[in-house]
């Protein structure tokens, strides 16, 4: 265990830390704590997993989806960025990318130790990027790891920002179309605990420059992963780029293709011309 690991008695509730993290930081230099925040022997709740699975489109299985493990680690994201040493506020930051690896199937009955630290602060043309690096262990075995990349607008980090343009997107013909009612964000807030009002409150959404609330990016991610659930192997890594938020209510398109053991999938506008989320899933041997 690294010396600077802070072990929490239980998973922190998100309300307080979230409220604190709504207060903007005066210091515009991006700074994060070096500690790892850890919760041990976390019991997974089957009822909450069932609710999560229904909201996101997963089949309730004995083994859990990778995105569920992200949800379990998420309160520690807020904790890591909610501490005194942090100048980045998670509530105002934008989740721009997420990578995670399921190293082996994880059962809902396993007790898990979850650790999260903030790392890799770097410049971006619109602010600073930071990675929330998480790992989940069962006993001594690491079973999952994840990197969530957030963009803190207006913050600065030393160095030159790389050219941040996305890969060009070619229009696709969606072979699935999902209606996303406004309720989806309320449902996802319940199962994820993510209290960010930008997803459920019109005024909060407007304050952040959106005409309507936007659905949680991790819901869109989970929904897209759920669409591939039959072809996900026992261990896989999945990466997504959140390109453009989905306004609520809305209708989105989905298309996927599979080649040489790699599945690429896009969540798009319903006509397939613009991407919301781009995903890549690879088997891990």
């Amino acid at each position: 265990m690294p010396a600077d690991t802070i072990v929490l008695e239980s998973m922190p509730s998100m309300g307080g830390a979230a409220a604190r993290s709504l207060v903007p930081s005066r210091d515009k230099r991006a700074r994060v704590p070096s500690s790892t925040f850890e919760v041990r022997d976390l019991v997974q709740e089957t009822a909450r997993l069932a609710d999560y699975a229904r909201v996101c489109g997963f089949t309730l299985r004995d083994t859990v989806p990778a995105t569920w493990l992200h949800v379990l680690a998420f309160p520690l994201h807020i904790q890591a960025l909610g501490s005194q040493d942090s100048t980045i506020r998670l509530m105002g930051a934008v989740h721009v990318a997420n990578r995670m690896t399921m190293l082996r199937p994880v059962s809902v009955s396993e007790r898990l130790t979850i650790g999260v630290r903030a790392d890799n602060v770097r410049p971006h043309r619109r602010g600073a990027l930071v990675d929330l690096v998480a790992d989940i262990r069962s006993g001594d075995e690491t079973v999952w790891d994840g990197v969530s990349t957030y963009l803190a607008s207006g913050m600065t980090a030393p160095g030159d920002a790389p050219d941040g343009s996305h890969e060009p997107f070619e229009a696709v013909t969606p072979h699935a179309r999902w209606r996303v009612p406004a309720r989806t964000a309320k449902d996802y807030r319940r199962v994820s605990g993510d209290p960010n009002p930008i997803h459920t409150n019109r005024l909060a959404a407007k304050a952040f420059g959106f005409p309507r609330p936007i659905v949680h990016g991790m819901w869109t991610h989970a929904r897209a992963l759920a669409a591939l659930e039959g072809s996900l192997g026992s261990s896989y890594s999945v990466g997504v780029d959140f390109v453009k938020p989905v306004l609520l209510p809305g209708t989105i398109g989905f298309s996927s293709s599979h080649e040489d053991g790699v599945t690429t999938a896009d969540v798009t506008t319903k006509d397939g011309t613009k991407p919301h989320l781009r995903m890549r899933v690879e088997a891990v041997s």
Binding site: H175, A176, R177, W178, R179, A227, F254
Partner: peptide, 9 residues
């Protein structure tokens, strides 16, 4: 159920 598209679509 999986695609949200009707048979006609």
């Amino acid at each position: 159920p999986r695609t949200g598209l009707s048979m006609g679509e």
